[in-house]
Amino acid sequence: MEKEFLVEIVIESKPVLKDPEGAVIANDLMRRHGFEMVNGVRCAKLLRVKLNATDEKKALSIAENMVKELRLANPVAQTYSISIRK
């Protein structure tokens, strides 16, 4: 029996790349306004995907294949992570 899973795909720049948006949020918003404990921010893109699968493992593998086949993350410059949202 298939059921619907909510899969979250987070796509972000490789750590070697600068993230000017994250740096401004960390330095000019958080650290400047009382949250000096913040050491850094990286901005990412979140895709919340609803898909049908028989189980969690299958849902994750579908998402993994999709990221690779459709290049949802550009391997030149980005990394990704996939999880199931309960």
Binding site: S13, K18, P20, V24, N74, V76
Partner: peptide, 16 residues
């Protein structure tokens, strides 16, 4: 570049 006919990637401008 996205079709991999050219090498590399075009990222967001550094100035945002």
């Amino acid at each position: 570049a996205e079709a991999q006919l050219l090498p590399g990637a075009l990222l967001r401008n550094s100035s945002m």
